[in-house]
Amino acid sequence: MSQTANPPRRRGSIGDMIFQALATGAGILVLVLLGAIIVSLLIGGLPAFRQFGVGFLTGADWDPVKQVFGSVVPIYGTIITSILALVMAVPIAFGIAFWLTELAPNWLQRPVGIAVELLAAVPSIIYGMWGFFVIVPVMAEYVQPFVIDLLGDAPGIGFLFQGPPFGTGIFTAALILGVMIIPFIAATMRDVFQTVPPVFKESAYGLGCTTWEVMRAIVIPYTRISVMGGIMLGLGRALGETMAVTFVIGNTNRISGSIFGPGNTIASLIALEFPESEAGSLKLASLMALGFMLFVISFIVLAISRMLLRTGART
């Protein structure tokens, strides 16, 4: 960017105008870009919506041979894996960020911080291959049989943990997703924790607060909105993650009550089926429509989180 080449006349008002115009223009560009993506998906998916109507949203069938397509299974899979992934990742990411900013000895902060960020540097297809060849056998051999034995017959929640231990499935996918989003959330949290002015923290320490109390009463309230931003970043990646999930989720278009059962997500279904869907087919239209649904889900998730933040800010 070459703003420096234009020395501002009269207290930089022209420079200001140019810069503001540039920034606003970029904002509008992003708006148009996403609008165009969504519109192109909607147009592409229209034949499916027209053919199945509401049935596309309520149907659990995905039968390419009989040309019947419904979106319930992949939508369910997308939401459940993302939620499970967040449940696993947020506490760990928070722990890492807390440890890095407040607890770690100085000489360890940078190397460990970099190491955690490197988790984000691992390409998603590698997570998929690693998950499939390393995690899945462990899940099949040890984790799932153990948990199924332990909890499979538990009253009330037993159904959550039943089924044959294939190693793949909803839980394994969520685990991989969780690992993938840890660095996104942890890195953002750490960066924002570090921006808390030291004077705030020092005065709290001066009152005799423990590290944890400073974190809870000073750091978290101060940075809450940005922390949510980091979590959104992670959730965003989890919702749309494609390659890693396709390897480990079991890819079955049935809803199974067990978290060890196989499933599918919108993104993985699109990636798996797209290469074999030719232009003009109802299947391709259905995949486009699914992509549109994913945007709708992202919209809803974001809107809810915004609302939560606003109510949180008021009280």
Binding site: P64, V65, A140, N251, T252, L272, E276
Partner: peptide, 29 residues
């Protein structure tokens, strides 16, 4: 009941991705 196609609505079993996925799953299970 099922028919033929590049992907179908399977009645039984588990899916795996690619030749390698099928081979590895068969090897493991």
């Amino acid at each position: 009941q099922v028919g033929s196609g590049t992907s179908v609505k399977w009645v039984a079993g588990n899916g795996a991705k690619g030749n390698d996925g099928v081979a590895a799953t068969v090897r493991q299970v």
